[in-house]
Structure formats: structure tokens, C-alpha cells
């Protein structure tokens, strides 16, 4: 098992949609085509109206910190030289509550944050909350997948 040299990589099939949005640099979540509920974590039908026609749509990535922790213990070897690890519970303006990595400047309940999805070193997308217009992963360079540099003409 390589599970301890990279962050946890197991995800549901639906998570591929989250990965694709993150790869495109977009913040897309499931939206119910019948009742418009924005839903997270993803599942195959709307938990409010039970409609199974859901679309992945760009929604507001803005939210506020509900609570947070500085984690210093892990079941995975990967994290053991990365403590403390700041993790938050973020209420998105569009409804859902997300567990995210949290920028060190946002360790206050009520902090306004913008949430961004990026691949971690497992290759799966995770979410980072940071002050709007700041580099969302500045405090997490040892966790995010290094980006392949492309020359822009």
C-alpha cells in the first residue's frame, strides 16, 4: 500500500467531477435541476427533493469559517512532517458546509474566505479556504500537487 506516502486517495466515482472542475480552475458543485439546492458532499440524488437529475454548475466560492482546528496527529505517515495542519469548517454562501484546509490568517470564527479546489499529492482534489484574492495554497505548498509549468506565448 502506498497510502502512507501520499494523502488518502480513495474517492467515490462522483468525485471525478470535483477533480475535473479543480483541474479547470473552476468552483463547481452539484445543483439540483428541480429545487436548485446546492449539494456537498456529492451524492446521486438531491437530499431535499430526491430528484436524481443534478448538474455540476459554477457557484459562489465565498463563505465564512464556522470552526477550525490545528491538527497535530494523523493516521497517515504523509502528514507527519506537516503539523500543525490548519483545517476549517466553512459555510458557503450558497448553502453547503465544507471541510477545507484553512489559511493561517483565517483561524477565526466568522473569517470571510474564498474556497478553491486543487489536487493534493494523491492527485485528488481537495479544497482550500483563504482570504479572497490571496493565493489559496500559500500555506500548503507541501500538500498540493506541483503544477507542471507551461510556457505561455
Amino acid at each position: 500500500m502506498t497510502g502512507n506516502t501520499i494523502p488518502p486517495a480513495a474517492r467515490s466515482r462522483l468525485w471525478q467531477q470535483v477533480n475535473e472542475a479543480a483541474a479547470e480552475g473552476l468552483f463547481r458543485l452539484q445543483v439540483c435541476t428541480r429545487c436548485d439546492k446546492v449539494q456537498y458532499p456529492p451524492q446521486e440524488f438531491c437530499s431535499r427533493c430526491l430528484c436524481d437529475e443534478l448538474s455540476w454548475e459554477a457557484v459562489s466560492p465565498m463563505g465564512k469559517v464556522l470552526s477550525w482546528t490545528r491538527s497535530r496527529a494523523s493516521t497517515s505517515e504523509f502528514f507527519r512532517d506537516k503539523f500543525p495542519l490548519n483545517i476549517g469548517l466553512v459555510k458557503l454562501d450558497c448553502g453547503p458546509v465544507m471541510v477545507t484546509y484553512l489559511a493561517a490568517s483565517c483561524l477565526h470564527t466568522g473569517s470571510r474566505v474564498q474556497v478553491t479546489g486543487k489536487q493534493d499529492k494523491s492527485g485528488q482534489a481537495v479544497f482550500f479556504a483563504a482570504p479572497p484574492d490571496k493565493d489559496p495554497v500559500a500555506d500548503f505548498n507541501n500538500i498540493v500537487m506541483e503544477e507542471v509549468k507551461h510556457e505561455r506565448k
Binding site: 480513495a10 474517492r11 456529492p42 471541510v99
Partner: peptide, 13 residues
Amino acid sequence: RFSSDAAFPYGAG
């Protein structure tokens, strides 16, 4: 499934 997707990956705590 929710935990594997959306909680456990954050530090595996």
C-alpha cells in the same frame, strides 16, 4: 463515502 470524499483526506486525522 462522505467521509472518504470530503472529510478524511484533510489530514487523515
